[in-house]
Lab assay of single mutants.
Amino acid sequence: AVTGSQTALLLRAFEKDRFPGIAAREELARETGLPESRIQIWFQNRR
């Protein structure tokens, strides 16, 4: 499950760019500790 702090970080990124590229998703994966594929799905679901 995604924690509150991970969600906050993802929401901030989403406000800046609703369609992040692979580099941005990989950076978010490093920052959150989540797999990049999970980040991609999160953005798809959020849109």
Rank of each mutant, 00 (worst) to 15 (best):
L9H: 06
R30M: 08
E31D: 09
T3Q: 07
R18K: 13
E36R: 03
G21E: 07
R25M: 15
L9T: 09
L28D: 00
F19S: 05
Q40H: 07
I39E: 01
E36V: 06
T7S: 11
W42T: 01
D17C: 15
G33W: 01
A8G: 05
R30G: 04
A23R: 08
Q40C: 15
G33L: 03
R18M: 14
V2Q: 12
E15Y: 08
E31R: 10
T7L: 15
R47A: 06
R38T: 15
A8K: 13
T7W: 14
Q6H: 06
A13C: 11
E15A: 11
G4D: 13
R18Q: 13
L34R: 02
I41S: 10
E36K: 04
E36F: 06
E31L: 15
R30A: 08
E31I: 15
Q6S: 05
R47Q: 08
R47L: 09
R18G: 04
R38M: 15
D17W: 08
K16V: 06
Q6L: 08
L11I: 12
A1V: 11
I39P: 15
Q40S: 08
E26H: 11
R25Y: 12
P35F: 03
A1F: 14
A24D: 09
A29W: 02
G33M: 04
P20Y: 02
L10Q: 00
A29H: 03
I22V: 13
I22A: 11
S5R: 13
F19R: 03
Q40A: 15
P35H: 07
Q44F: 07
T7D: 14
R47N: 12
A1G: 12
P20Q: 01
R30N: 06
E15L: 11
A1M: 14
E15D: 15
N45W: 06
I22L: 14
I41E: 14
A29S: 14
P20A: 03
L28R: 00
P20F: 03
F19N: 07
V2C: 03
P20V: 03
P35G: 04
E26N: 13
A8N: 08
F19Y: 09
F14C: 03
D17G: 05
L11E: 15
A29Y: 02
T32L: 11
A29V: 06
E15M: 13
L34S: 00
F43L: 03
A29M: 08
E27P: 00
E27R: 15
N45M: 11
F14S: 01
T3K: 06
L9P: 03
A24N: 04
E26G: 06
I22F: 12
I41T: 07
P20S: 02
L9F: 11
D17Y: 05
I41W: 11
F14K: 02
D17P: 00
Q44C: 02
F19D: 08
I22K: 13
F19A: 05
A23D: 12
F43S: 00
R18V: 04
R38W: 15
I41N: 08
E26A: 13
L11D: 05
G33K: 05
L34M: 07
P20H: 02
S5V: 11
E36P: 11
A23E: 14
D17L: 04
S5L: 15
A23P: 04
G21L: 04
G21C: 03
F19T: 05
R30S: 05
T7M: 15
E15F: 12
L34Y: 03
A1P: 13
G33N: 06
T3M: 09
L28G: 00
G4H: 14
R12V: 09
E26P: 01
L10H: 00
T32Q: 01
I39W: 01
I39T: 01
T3L: 05
A24T: 08
A1K: 14
S5C: 15
R38D: 14
R30P: 00
T3D: 08
A1N: 13
V2G: 04
A13V: 08
L11R: 06
R18C: 14
L11Q: 07
F14W: 11
P35V: 05
A8H: 08
R12K: 14
F19K: 04
E31C: 07
V2S: 04
F14T: 02
G33F: 02
A1Q: 14
E31G: 03
A29Q: 05
E27S: 06
D17E: 09
P35L: 07
V2A: 06
R25Q: 06
A13L: 08
R12F: 10
G21T: 09
L10T: 00
F14V: 01
G21P: 09
R38V: 15
R46Q: 15
I41L: 13
L9K: 06
A24V: 14
E31S: 08
E26L: 12
E27C: 00
A24P: 03
L11C: 12
A8P: 02
L11K: 07
I39D: 02
V2Y: 10
A1L: 12
N45Y: 10
N45F: 07
L9A: 11
G4P: 15
R47K: 03
R25F: 06
A8F: 08
F19I: 04
R12L: 12
R30K: 14
T32D: 03
Q6D: 04
Q40D: 14
F14E: 01
I41M: 14
G21W: 02
T7F: 14
R38Q: 13
L28A: 00
T3C: 08
D17M: 06
V2R: 04
P35Y: 01
P35K: 07
L34Q: 01
F14A: 00
E15S: 07
K16I: 10
S5K: 13
E27V: 13
T32E: 02
N45L: 14
L10W: 00
R30T: 05
E26C: 15
E26F: 09
W42F: 03
A1D: 14
L11H: 06
A23S: 10
V2D: 05
R38C: 14
E15K: 12
P20C: 03
A24K: 10
K16F: 10
K16N: 10
A29C: 07
G4E: 15
T32A: 04
F43Y: 04
I41F: 10
P20K: 03
I22P: 11
F14L: 03
T7I: 13
Q44T: 07
G21F: 03
L10E: 02
S37R: 08
A13S: 07
L28N: 00
R25T: 09
N45I: 08
T7V: 12
L11W: 06
S37N: 08
L28V: 02
L9N: 03
P35T: 14
R12Y: 08
P35E: 11
I22H: 11
I39Q: 03
S5G: 07
L11A: 05
Q40P: 01
R46V: 06
F14D: 00
Q6N: 10
E36H: 07
A24M: 12
G4V: 13
F14P: 01
R30L: 09
Q6C: 12
A24H: 05
E27F: 07
A13P: 01
R46G: 04
R47E: 06
R12C: 12
I22C: 11
A13W: 09
E15P: 00
W42Y: 01
R46K: 14
I22S: 06
E27H: 11
F43P: 00
Q40F: 12
G33S: 04
R47P: 03
A13G: 03
N45Q: 11
L28Q: 00
Q44W: 08
A8E: 11
T32K: 00
R25E: 02
N45K: 12
G33V: 02
N45G: 06
T3A: 05
F19W: 10
R38H: 12
N45T: 09
V2M: 15
R38S: 13
L10D: 02
L34C: 02
F19M: 06
A23I: 13
A29E: 04
P35S: 15
R46D: 02
R47V: 09
S5Y: 14
R18S: 10
K16D: 07
Q40I: 12
T3V: 06
Q44S: 09
L11G: 03
A24Q: 13
Q6R: 07
R12Q: 11
A13H: 11
F14M: 04
R18D: 05
R47I: 07
L11N: 12
R30F: 07
S5D: 15
V2H: 04
L28E: 02
E26V: 12
I39R: 00
G33E: 02
R30E: 06
I39V: 09
L10N: 00
S37H: 11
F43H: 01
G4C: 14
Q44K: 07
A23V: 09
R25A: 03
R46P: 02
I41H: 10
I22Y: 12
T32C: 06
T7P: 02
A23G: 09
T7G: 10
F14H: 02
Q6Y: 05
F19G: 02
L34N: 00
L28C: 00
S37E: 14
N45H: 09
A1C: 15
E26R: 13
A23H: 11
R18N: 10
K16R: 09
R12N: 10
G33A: 04
G21R: 04
R38I: 15
F19P: 04
A8D: 11
R30D: 04
L11P: 03
A1S: 13
A8C: 14
E26Q: 13
A23M: 10
L34A: 01
R47T: 05
E15G: 07
N45R: 08
